[in-house]
Design a protein around this nucleic acid. Structure first.
Length: 350
DNA sequence: CGCAATGATTAATG
DNA sequence: CATTAATCATTGCG
């Protein structure tokens, strides 16, 4: 409903309802004369233009060429340009630069953080985020556990990149195609650069909305993978015998103060091939469980006490130097050694 | 299967 | 932020 009323009154006889490009000079003159012939002429032309899209390609091509060479073509073209000039104003300013979509930014950020859209997987900065809990100085032990996760993640990444590239390529192809088409058409109808730009931006918008969907689903996949991975982490695996030996040894030889320092934890972690966090977990569990039922651990306590006592005896009697440098017990509660029950001050209780 | 042991997670605490 | 205490979820053994 946006036609200009001032143009409406003119074209009565021609079957060109609503076409804004109708020139003014065809009045419904009474007599069939010179003007009438021209009117008929222009009417024909317009009719042909209007119906050109209904024809077969070859036919249309021929017709187009004919129209292009028509003597009236420049004049009509000018009229079209003029009208377009006026009407295009109403279109302009409708849509300005859109602000960056916050949703899209969120997705981008997440993909980046997850290492999907970042740089190629190298040092495993992606896995670093996943293995954040297991950071510590001791690396290269949990890679086996995370390999599954990383493999799946990189699979997702690969799909993501492939799709992204595909979309980008398709977008470019389509854009150039449309631009060529518009350029071609600009010979027969007025097309401003502004319009081309607008068209291109529309195309880009469409394609980026597709990309958005891709990112969305990628994010979902990563989230699912992540939750599965966390669940998998919950699926614990018992430490091997040697590791528990080492941990227990430390625990019972520091029974009065079983709180390894950060350095000690790192040392233990390295020796046990586990992470510092796992060492902390172990000591946390051990302390609470020991305190909860000392009797149950008595046997174990004696055993390790005896072991360390033997070690100490070996070390001192042989004057050896092969002492383990890893456990330089500053506090030798083994001082009152072979004594069975250990009177500790672990807590207020006891 | 039941059950204890055990590593990991979580809320509370100072 | 490190620990505690409770709890979850597996594991491993009889």
């Amino acid at each position: 409903m946006d036609e200009q009323p001032r143009l409406m009154h003119s074209h009565a006889g021609v079957g060109m309802a609503g076409h804004p490009g109708l020139p003014q000079h065809m009045q419904e003159g009474g007599g069939a004369t010179d003007a009438d012939g021209r009117k008929q002429d222009i009417g024909d032309i317009l009719q042909q233009i209007m119906t050109i899209t209904d024809q077969s390609l070859d036919e249309a091509q021929a017709r187009k060429h004919a129209l292009n060479c028509h003597r009236m073509k420049p004049a009509l073209f000018n009229v079209l340009c003029e009208i377009k000039e006026k009407t295009v104003l109403s279109i302009r300013g409708a849509q300005e630069e859109e602000p960056p979509d916050p949703q899209l930014m969120r997705l981008d950020n997440m993909l980046l953080a997850e290492g999907v859209s970042g740089p190629e997987k190298g040092g495993g900065s992606a896995a670093a985020a996943a293995a954040a809990a297991a950071s510590g100085g001791a690396g290269a032990d949990n890679s086996a556990e995370h390999s599954d996760y990383r493999a799946k993640l990189s699979q997702i990444r690969q799909i993501y990149h492939t799709e992204l590239e595909k979309y980008e390529q398709a977008c470019n192809e389509f854009t150039t195609h449309v631009m060529n088409l518009l350029r071609e058409q600009s010979r027969t109808r007025p097309i401003s650069p502004k319009e081309i730009e607008r068209m291109v931006s529309i195309i880009h918008r469409k394609f980026s909305s597709i990309q958005m969907q891709l990112k969305q689903s990628t994010c979902e996949a990563v989230m699912i993978l992540r939750s599965r991975f966390l669940d998998a982490r919950r699926k614990r695996r018992n430490f091997n015998k040697q590791a528990t030996e080492i941990l227990n040894e430390y625990f019972y030889s520091h029974l009065s103060n079983p709180y390894p320092s950060e350095e000690a934890k790192e040392e233990l972690a390295k020796k046990c091939a586990i992470t510092v966090a796992q060492v902390s977990n172990w000591f946390g569990n051990k302390r609470i469980r020991y305190k909860k039922n000392i009797g149950k651990f008595q046997e174990e306590a004696n055993m390790y006490a005896a072991r360390t006592a033997v070690n100490a005896a070996n070390a001192s009697s042989h004057g050896s130097q092969a002492n383990s440098p890893s456990t330089p017990n500053s506090a030798g509660e083994t001082g009152s050694p072979c004594g069975k029950t250990t009177g500790f001050n672990m807590f207020s209780g006891v």
